[in-house]
Design a protein around this nucleic acid. Structure first.
Lengths: 206, 206
DNA sequence: CATATACGGTACTGCGGAGTTCCGGATATG
DNA sequence: CATATCCGGAACTCCGCAGTACCGTATATG
């Protein structure tokens, strides 16, 4: 959305040789991608909305697909860092603590981007890898931490399939957004936790 | 559409006015769609592979999107009919009985088709409706029957959220195929049943 | 056999978007 | 001020595909 402007001090010295605007352009590219899908997106749309020239984009990225690939790959850093994760002392507490408007909006944007590139994923290994790394893995990583913590403190059995559990939440959300076209609200996410994920690890909901 | 053509009296003149080849063409369209995605697919590809002329397709469908829409909508009938569903006497038995190579292949094809149109679904309500009706709903319907049976025979509580349960399996499969790009095998499907679905209804796996 | 109809196939048009080129202007350097 | 560098933007080429037009042919009818 490009609203995350550079709070970084940008002294007016020097040239903008340093590709300063790259992140901004990539962010615009993600927006257009999410709105129109890969094939619906044109390089000119991105250029115009980023107030840049089409030539500028081609100076930086050799092709449209490279631009998109870079944009997707650069989503990777945007996630909450590990230190700022909730640690409530219970698995349910941790999972519920992740249900926050910003987190939900982040998910939905990622899923719209995902929707825009799914058809490419099947035929472009690079894109598949980028999507995996930037969209799937970060979400799983967070859950993985929660489940491992729960195992360590003896809250859940140690023989559960953590990798599988990590995917349940994301899978239910992706299905609902991409295929069912229904909204992801707090109630839905809570029921995922209480009716599906917790039972799967042998816990009863509150 | 297409196959429920006019049984109306019109045996006059010409050749097969009955659009006999429509189902064949639509089936080819689905194959191409699954292989290349909506935007990668060209009407000529479909025509050539169906050994038909491009003009023939345009005589029958006004545009490419109409062709695809019809093709997707016509997948609806392809599912196993209700009478031939397994009825093993237990929920787990019924769910496991659905794990068969033909059923798996059917699912994977549907999901590839789905992958080819996801980006359109977000912006084309007709396509969204067709996909919902032909790809999502039939699968859910089968599960719905199994869960209702289980409730009727008192195997599982009657207050479970059937609609939500119906989606768990499809969601896990879709996520694995479309986003993780991993194969859907018997082991995966069994673990879905035993580690996720059955726990969610309060049952322990075998 | 004559005729009408739909078909397969080819050649065409029109358009939109990828990628390129060019230029005038802004900015920094010395 | 002179110069070098990069940018935004406009104009351009090129190409692929949606959609159309047309033709030769196969088949059904009478």
């Amino acid at each position: 959305m490009a609203q995350i402007e550079h709070a970084t001090v940008k002294p007016r010295l020097g040239r903008k040789r340093d590709h300063t605007r790259d992140p901004e352009i990539l962010d615009v590219a993600l927006d257009v991608l999410a709105e129109t899908g890969y094939d619906g997106m044109t390089v000119e749309m991105v250029a115009t909305r980023a107030k840049a020239g089409k030539a500028t984009l081609y100076r930086r990225w050799p092709s449209k697909s490279d631009l998109v690939l870079d944009a997707v790959a650069c989503m990777k850093g945007r996630d909450l860092d590990v230190d700022s994760l909730p640690d409530t002392g219970t698995l349910r507490g941790d999972l519920v603590a992740m249900i926050k408007p910003p987190s939900i909006r982040d998910s939905e944007r990622k899923l719209k981007v995902m929707a825009g590139i799914v058809s490419m994923i099947a035929r472009n290994p690079e894109m598949a890898a980028a999507a995996q790394e930037a969209l799937v893995e970060p979400r799983a990583a967070v859950n993985r931490i929660f489940f491992r913590r729960a195992i360590d403190r003896g809250e859940i059995p140690s023989d559960v399939d953590v990798e599988k559990l990590c995917m349940i939440g994301p899978a239910l959300v992706a299905y609902r957004v991409l295929l069912l076209r229904k909204p992801v609200d707090r109630e839905f996410l809570l029921s995922n936790i209480d009716e599906v994920i917790l039972p799967a690890v042998g816990l009863r909901a509150a």
